[in-house]
Amino acid sequence: MFHADDVAAAFGGPVTYLGTGSFGETWRLGEQAIKIIHRESSERVAREVEGLGRVSHPNVVHLLGVDQAALAGTDFQVLRFEFVAGGDLETALDSGRLLPLEDLLAFLTGLLSGVAALHDAGVLHRDLKPGNVGLRSSVWAEPVILDLGLARLLDMSSITAYPAQVGSLMYMAPEQLLGRRVRKAADIFAVGVLTRLALTGHHPFEPPGRPLQDISQLLRNIETGPVDLPLEVPEPLRALLTRMVSPAEHRRGSAASCLREVASL
């Protein structure tokens, strides 16, 4: 981890450490979130984030630019994003907050809309998880997708080397876990898991009191089906949120079709 003074010197202003994720450290610089990429070549990063510049949507964090910065005598790729104040889904859940039922539609619509915008721009996120879903101004109805499109840089070897990334596995679609081709449906799966988690506080494929032992068990639980949602959740939404976490990709539906279904409710 870099020293705050070094980061501040590199970027010309006071910074606040936000955290370390799959690809590097994130610092706040005014109204920007600076992600310093630890390990990838500039060419690869530039290639992977090329599509993000095409996305302009209130539920997707805005990529401001791609730079280079010298830190500790080494050049690093830097991604500049807008800073989304209000924390993320992970911190909300850790503090005991759950998604209220009255905000469910707005939260789900916001996430799906953001994913739809990414997909329309030809971008797959691949790493949607609680830490990558911001809540603008801590408002459930304004989810913001963070850490875009870098997950293609994520591979199994890096998961082994960086244990912090293991958390991503819990939100991966079965085809991702099996190392198969990843399509847009993987992001839909993640949205379904995140929404169910936000509602109940429990992972849909880890029944309360029965922690998962390994990926194989996770895969078996996905095949079996998720833990039921509370009956207070209206049946059409329960059906949609169950479909979205189907092991069969096509049954999850596209972001567009899920949005149509939500809009009809």
Partner: peptide, 12 residues
Amino acid sequence: RNQLFAELVDRD
């Protein structure tokens, strides 16, 4: 079937 349908849906 699942592989075919997944591809059909993905090509939006």
